[in-house]
Design a binder for these strands. Structure first.
Lengths: 265, 265
DNA sequence: GAGTGGTCTAGACCACTGT
DNA sequence: CAGTGGTCTAGACCACTCC
């Protein structure tokens, strides 16, 4: 076994035993290199393994720290039905909480929210998903939701609506109206759309450098989920497509499949 | 921007443009270092970025290659109902294909299969999930399914059954009877169990070194799914728990949520 | 300014793969 | 055996953070 692997294993065991504990600082790289009797680059290689595992993170100019446990987000499909059920409640009732709060158990006041709207056109991929021609006008909306107590976003969302659909309610074209109480399903309702089904397609890949930074997961090497969410209305038309990037180390998707009973025999 | 990032970006663009194409070999590290006018370690750092992205892979003593597109596996919950429906068919009917074939579109004859059985006892976590005492006897079963044409396994599965349940049919205690036509749901049926629901909990994390090797995804840094599958029978008892590791770069989970209609108003 | 991690270098040696 | 990637070293310099 290589030196760096042996050192990584030893450090991992120490950290799992709580020495140092979550949030605490490790010794500096030079100190550790001396302690383990290896060169600094080798020591850095060992630390790189633990970084990729999400166990530690480095802050430039400050030190290397054991990552604290983060607010876990459990994401279940019930959120979709729950959001639908709320669409036709009053504004006041809807304003109380949004879907993100349902997942995290956080209060609305703990969450920070930012949105950017931008007109765009359908590329190959989007045209295929929506079933429209390449170049069709779309409205792109980018969201970040963030827990105030944690400073790092919980998700990065890019959502696409058909511009022809959205423009029927001019309020939908202006990001100043976000956060919209009741979410996207309520927005769609204002232009007469009822959703029939929502499809989640979930892939996993390493975070790109910019995503890692945005999600507050130091450097690359940490896994993210890429969720493609396709919403279909009651006429069978695709009305919204979202790409959601979620940090792999703090997100769990949770789906229960109900099976049909065997007929009594 | 750092040199290694600039080089990684340039190489990525070249590969995405098909130069070199899938499966083809890149120049050696020393050659590339000369071409980009950097030291070999810096060149290796640039290549490390692309390896983590799953774009290239290195084979020791041979070279660095652009990774070929792999057989994608789309995993939907319909597989569970489909497997349940087949439980009470005849052996001959069941033998035709298994659930893995359904996902991949491969033929049974393209798939290789290996299983290992081992008695064990419930640790904290398993005891909690099964709702039994710590130390209760379990049967641990480890599976690998592999596409013959690809040599790398499609999934690593560790499944746990209550030993008291499995022993009612001694055939279930012997791995020599694998692959069992009809899968786990059929095995459970032989001891009088009908499943009511199956819960999937999906997490993502970087592959451990041993998993990366087993799944044929060179070195660490590539993301894997960790699926925890919990099967509940019609009496509400947890009868099976599986931990499934799936390569992130070739697996897509696909769940559709059907929403209830608003009552006409 | 002192201390930290991030980048980069130049080179040595080893382990593995192919011929 | 030659050529490849994998490991490891000893050091230089820079960018960042905090006092």
């Amino acid at each position: 076994m290589a030196k760096y692997e042996r050192i990584a294993n030893e450090l991992r065991a120490q950290i799992n035993a709580g020495q140092p504990g979550p949030g605490e600082r490790l010794s500096s790289e030079t100190e550790l290199a001396t302690r383990f009797d290896v060169s600094v680059p080798t020591m850095r290689q060992a630390l790189g393994v633990l970084k990729a595992e999400g166990l530690i993170e480095s802050r430039h100019g400050t030190g290397t720290f054991v990552r604290a446990a983060r607010q876990p987000v459990r994401r279940t499909p019930e959120r979709y039905q729950w959001e639908k059920d709320r669409v036709r409640l009053t504004d006041a009732e809807r304003a109380v909480t949004g879907a993100t709060e349902k997942d995290t158990g956080l209060e609305m006041s703990d969450l920070d929210f930012s949105a950017e709207y931008e007109p765009t056109t359908a590329d190959d991929r989007l045209a295929r998903v929506f079933g429209v021609a390449v170049g069709t006008s779309l409205l792109r909306r980018s969201y970040r939701t963030r827990s105030r107590s944690e400073s790092a976003p919980i998700s990065l969302v890019t959502s696409y609506l058909l511009h022809d659909v959205a423009k029927q309610n001019p309020m939908l074209l202006d990001s100043a109206n976000e956060p919209w109480p009741g979410g996207t399903q309520h927005q769609l309702w204002t232009v007469g759309i009822e959703l029939d089904s929502i499809r989640d397609e979930i892939a996993a890949r390493p975070a790109r450098a910019d995503e890692a930074e945005a999600l507050g997961i130091d450097t690359e090497g940490v896994a993210v989920f890429e969720l493609t969410k396709t919403s279909v209305d009651t006429t069978g038309r695709v009305v919204e497509v979202s790409y959601v990037v979620l940090p792999g180390d703090r997100t769990v998707f949770d789906y229960t499949t109900q099976l049909r009973r065997w007929e009594e025999s």
